[in-house]
Computed example of a mutant assay.
Amino acid sequence: MMALNKSVSFLTSIAIIATLAGCSSQMHKAAQGQESQYKQTLASMAGTYTGILPDNKGNEVMITFRLTKANTFTLTKQYLTSDGSLVSDFKGKASWRDTDHGLVVSNADESGFVFRWEDGKLFPIEVEGEPVTGETALKYSLVNENAIAINITTLEGTEWRLVELNGKAITKAAIPRQRISITFEGAEKKVYGSAGCNSYFGTYELKAENWISCSKIASTRMACSEEQMTIEQAFLKMLELVDNYTINGNQLTLNNATMALSARFEKARD
């Protein structure tokens, strides 16, 4: 009887060991599968991303981030000052952070960034060791240059007609002379159009991702009704202060990131 109990105990021990070994093997395979999935995702993310991000002091920095299929990267930071002085240029190997599946971009000398990848964009989770939350997390991102090229092609060479200015609809009745419009000419970076009463013209610059600035805006000096002139002046003021744009289908929106200024346009149909 004692021999039988020992045999049962021995067989039970073997079964437990086999079960534990099986669980360990399954966990190992799962970990390998997850690691393989991350590597595949990283490989699919390879490319050049550009945009503007805040540093841990709130200053805006222009970022150029190049990620290879081997997961190595080069990241260049440049402050948006008058001379655009180079801040740093560092290299390393990108990795995943298990807790939130964040893309970690840093090395021994730079605390760097942690990004969330979505639809070809990199959204900051951490910047130089500081978490990014709230509106800041939604406002800033890096965009793949391929997506930027498509966006720029859509922006330039198209006549856009104003339908809303600072939240107020702009109807044909309010501007009877001619519709307010804007065209960005890509070859010489000229911007021009109708302000409703007068024609205007100037230059523009595309900085990174969807950041844009217009300058040297001038116009003819015809007189129209008081209502038309009020709308025209508000439009030209907005144009001088715009710093970013978005395109959604046949609609273009020009905005100022820190002021309540915006203009919404639709593609001209005739």
Rank of each mutant, 00 (worst) to 15 (best):
T153G: 05
T183N: 11
Y140H: 07
G134E: 09
T64P: 00
T12W: 00
L236V: 15
F123S: 13
V191C: 06
T230G: 05
A234N: 14
L75V: 15
A15R: 02
C224A: 08
E226L: 09
L53F: 13
A3C: 02
E164L: 07
S262D: 07
N151R: 11
E126L: 13
S215N: 13
L4Q: 15
V8R: 12
S36A: 13
L4W: 12
Y140F: 15
S24L: 14
T230V: 12
E145F: 01
T158A: 04
M45H: 01
G22W: 03
T246N: 07
Q40C: 00
T81N: 11
N146F: 09
L239Y: 03
R179L: 08
Q78H: 02
N151I: 08
S24K: 07
I63S: 03
L142K: 10
E130T: 15
S9Q: 14
A70K: 10
K77I: 02
T220C: 05
F123R: 11
K168A: 12
P54D: 08
D98E: 09
L53N: 00
V143P: 01
C197M: 04
Y79A: 10
K216R: 12
G134C: 08
T253W: 00
N151H: 03
I63L: 06
I212G: 01
R269V: 15
N107K: 09
L42S: 00
L86V: 13
A263M: 07
L4P: 00
E164V: 06
I17M: 09
M45E: 09
S213D: 08
I182S: 05
I63R: 01
C197Q: 03
A257Q: 10
I180Q: 11
G120F: 01
S111N: 11
A234P: 02
F65N: 13
A195E: 01
M229S: 09
P54R: 12
Q26R: 02
V143Y: 08
C23V: 15
N71F: 10
L165P: 02
M1I: 13
N256E: 09
F10R: 11
Y49Q: 05
I175A: 05
